[in-house]
């Protein structure tokens, strides 16, 4: 089974982000980057599928030169080879634009399965996988926690996936390969990166493709105008009064402010 995993490089979770002078993006100069966490789960799922059923895991990522570091990390964790779609204006493209790049680069590989993370930790769009499926004309399922190959005939396989629904419900969904699944965090246990993996990754193939050569439109359908700091800051509200008063006030807050009841 040939599995492609689309991974994204995002600012590290603890990176201190500052809005740049244009007011349209963040200062990238001193940022440290990491692999988007849901993508790490997608990669883990792919590696486990390969360990069970054999095949090949290819990672694909688009972005500037720095993305190669995250690609190395994926190779270190066990991917077999990688495709780097070099693109320096990623932030200016919308979800459709990025998906077009990926779809064009993926098409010639004709994978049996394409996995992406559910959403990215920086933009949080949660659309890329679904749009790529649409562009490639493949069936898809989103919010997937576990993947199973239930039947296999030649290169065709039937896939069964466990999908998360709202409020603690789940569903299993079947679809034929080739297919696209977007993977939710937490379905698996991630493996940690090892020194041996990093050393071995040095010899694996990374093919670079330039965005300009893929012949897709860069004109966005949605334009980011500005980024700003949100107003609210987290603070603790202490509820006073007698036990009954405090209890009543709490229930009120939980119901209408926090909306968790």
């Amino acid at each position: 089974m040939k599995i492609i995993v689309a991974i994204k490089q995002v600012p590290e979770r603890d990176a201190q982000v500052h809005i740049d002078s244009s007011g349209q993006w963040i200062e990238e100069a001193n940022l440290q980057y990491a692999m988007n966490e849901p993508d790490a789960y997608a990669l883990e799922e792919a590696l486990q599928l390969k360990e069970k059923a054999g095949g090949e895991v290819i990672v694909i990522s688009t972005g500037p030169e720095r993305v190669s570091q995250t690609i190395r990390e994926a190779l270190a964790k066990g991917a077999d080879r990688a495709i780097h779609v070099v693109c320096d204006d990623l932030a200016a493209r919308d979800a459709l634009g990025v998906a077009r790049l990926l779809a064009a680069a993926i098409q010639p590989e004709s994978p049996d399965l394409l996995l992406t993370g559910l959403q990215s930790e920086d933009l949080g769009l949660g659309q890329t996988g679904v749009i790529v499926a649409e562009l490639l004309g493949l069936p898809h399922a989103s919010l997937i926690l576990q993947v199973e190959i239930i039947a296999k005939e030649g290169s065709k396989a039937q896939i069964k996936a466990r999908r998360e629904l709202e409020e603690g419900w789940f569903q299993s969904i079947e679809l034929p390969s080739p297919a696209v699944l977007t993977i939710q965090s937490g379905g698996n246990k991630l493996r940690y990166a090892t020194l041996m993996g990093i050393k071995r990754a040095k010899t694996k193939e990374v093919r670079t493709v330039h965005a300009a050569d893929l012949g897709v439109s860069a004109a966005p359908a949605v334009a980011l105008e500005a980024i700003t700091l949100p107003k609210k800051q987290k603070s603790t509200q202490i509820l006073n009064g007698s036990a009954e008063e405090a209890a009543a006030a709490l229930v009120e807050k939980l119901k209408f402010e926090a909306r968790v009841l």
Partner: peptide, 12 residues
């Protein structure tokens, strides 16, 4: 950025 920033968008 997980709620650390807001972005404003227009349809183009």
């Amino acid at each position: 950025m997980q709620g650390r920033l807001n972005g404003s968008y227009r349809h183009a």
